Amino acid sequence: MTRDDDLQRLILAVHALTRTAAIDTKNDTPAAQWRTLTLLRDHGPQRLGDLATLSRISQPGMTRLVHQLEDAGLVARGIHPDDSRVSVVSATEEGLQELDRWFQVLSAALTPHVAHLTDAEWDAVRVTADALGSRVRPEPELAR
Score class of each variant (00 low, 15 high):
64 R>D: 12
105 V>C: 13
120 A>I: 09
69 L>W: 00
90 S>E: 06
105 V>H: 15
60 P>L: 07
86 V>Y: 00
67 H>M: 03
113 H>A: 07
70 E>V: 03
92 T>S: 15
103 F>K: 05
117 L>I: 02
74 L>Q: 11
87 S>K: 15
94 E>N: 11
62 M>W: 05
114 V>W: 03
110 L>A: 08
91 A>E: 03
103 F>V: 07
119 D>H: 00
117 L>Y: 04
109 A>F: 05
61 G>I: 02
101 R>H: 09
117 L>M: 06
100 D>T: 15
121 E>C: 14
87 S>N: 12
78 G>H: 07
57 I>Q: 08
106 L>K: 08
122 W>L: 15
114 V>I: 13
112 P>I: 02
94 E>H: 14
55 S>N: 13
61 G>T: 03
107 S>P: 09
120 A>F: 02
120 A>T: 15
59 Q>H: 10
112 P>F: 00
65 L>Q: 03
96 L>Y: 07
96 L>A: 14
76 A>H: 11
59 Q>G: 09
67 H>N: 14
56 R>M: 10
96 L>M: 12
94 E>C: 03
100 D>F: 03
72 A>K: 14
71 D>P: 08
78 G>R: 10
69 L>P: 05
63 T>F: 03
68 Q>N: 08
69 L>F: 04
59 Q>N: 10
98 E>W: 04
111 T>H: 12
108 A>G: 10
